[in-house]
Design a protein around this nucleic acid. Structure first.
Lengths: 244, 244
DNA sequence: GTCAATTATTGACGCCTCGTCAGATTTTAC
DNA sequence: GTAAAATCTGACGAGGCGTCAATAATTGAC
């Protein structure tokens, strides 16, 4: 490790400060309200100085997103490190994801901004890679559990279907639900009263469909999720606090 | 119906012309490349004239998106109007959705632009409503099939779970898969070789999980999808041609 | 066919943001 | 103490947005 000079530390600290200033603007007023001039004047630095840290505002968003995704990854890790069968631990990951969307609203929102092609495409490949790696890390946590389920014999393997491809399904269902919930303000108008409960049920039914033992009835499953929730929520909250 | 004067027809035609000009720019170069000045100069009209049709560029995107969604709706209608059991017809809708993503790439892409909060939020409530209605229409087509499955007794009903909430699951899984496929250029790096096949399987397993009769093994299901595909593709292509 | 009223079109304009870079200022190293 | 290196500054050019006063075209009554 290289020792950093005082100046270097100052600069690093300022990078963090920029993110601290930019985040509430992005969240409260959207991307177009996040201007370099504004960040600069709020921080009482010249614009050029800000550009020394981030070569455009898209980079700021991706930097925020990376932080957010690291939090997500930590939650997943915690969930996966629980006890019991792989299926139970996968349920815990579902809960982690739910927690992230529900309780780490800001981070979840930042992730959404990052996905905008406008923003993604204008930021540097380096930062993109960092984010991709983090995403792959999250995925790996889950696919390990699938592998474990298969190894133990609880989950039948399928011809030409990798553990990652199974995760893809769970990922798609939770991700899809979250996006739809976040972007359709009128789900209730479409008779979708409780999207979170629905998503839980769909995950259960998907796992049942794959024959992942033990098979749970919906009632049973929802009960277990509540128990798991009581167990993990304090831990998730702890991680969230540390992150702040 | 009101007769339109020649002038009115001309104006209407120009609206269409604007969309024709704007679409390739949006698709090939993205939203920030779509400027009113550029559209105006390409059409050899003054900018103000374009603003007479669309009060900002976001409106243009939403207008394009509405066209796209109407195509999607037509595909869904065709799929739902097939013969056989509700489960089979739901599979056909899955295929319609696949066809839309795969073969109506441009329309699918336009839909993605519409979902950007930047764009959505800046366009008029009227146009937003049109789009929401179209989305609701698509959803209704599917939820009718769920109702039919339940009525016939093929699909067990669940406590506190509306047909729409069941559709939500299928919607989330296909939508989520499509977004992930479209936005993660390196799915193969994550060991997801064939996302389309995976998605098909996940839909099958979800339906199996819900106990929708007849239950299909994955092999069986994939075979049926191929058959259905042969049956519906020509019809879908027909609809696509009419739309152009 | 004329002409006034209505409707449509134009494009220069003001405002805003982006990202740059030459010059001013501060820090570092000796 | 001082010269070289690093850092910071903010005015500037480029370019997009949306407006609106001025201009042109169209309509329809006579």
């Amino acid at each position: 490790m290289v020792e950093l000079s005082r100046k270097q530390r100052e600069i690093q600290e300022r990078t963090r400060e920029i993110l601290r200033v930019a985040k509430p603007i992005l969240l409260a007023e959207g991307f177009q309200a996040l201007t370099m001039d504004r960040v600069a004047s709020l921080m009482e630095y010249a614009k050029g100085t800000i550009y020394g840290h981030f070569s455009n505002k898209e980079e700021i968003v991706l930097a925020l997103a990376l932080e957010a995704m690291r939090l997500r990854q930590k939650l997943f890790q915690k969930a996966a490190s629980g006890t019991g069968l792989a299926r139970r631990r996968i349920m815990a990951i579902g809960l982690a994801s739910e927690f992230y969307t529900q309780r780490c609203t800001e981070e979840f929102q930042v992730e959404q901004w990052m996905r905008h092609s406008n923003i993604w495409d204008k930021s540097s490949p380096d930062r993109q890679t960092l984010i991709r790696n983090c995403e792959a890390g999250c995925m790996q946590i889950v696919s390990e559990l699938v592998r474990e389920g298969q190894a133990v014999g609880d989950l039948p393997t399928l011809e030409r279907m990798s553990p990652e491809e199974m995760v893809f399904g769970l990922w798609a269902i939770t991700f899809g639900s979250q996006i739809l919930t976040a972007s359709s303000p009128s789900l209730t108008a479409l008779c979708i009263i409780d999207p979170i409960r629905s998503t839980r049920i769909h995950c259960c039914q998907l796992l049942n469909g794959f024959g992942w033992q033990p098979i749970h009835s919906v009632e049973e499953y929802l009960g277990m999720v509540d128990e798991l929730s009581a167990e993990f929520h304090p831990q998730f909250e702890q991680i969230q606090r540390e992150y702040r």
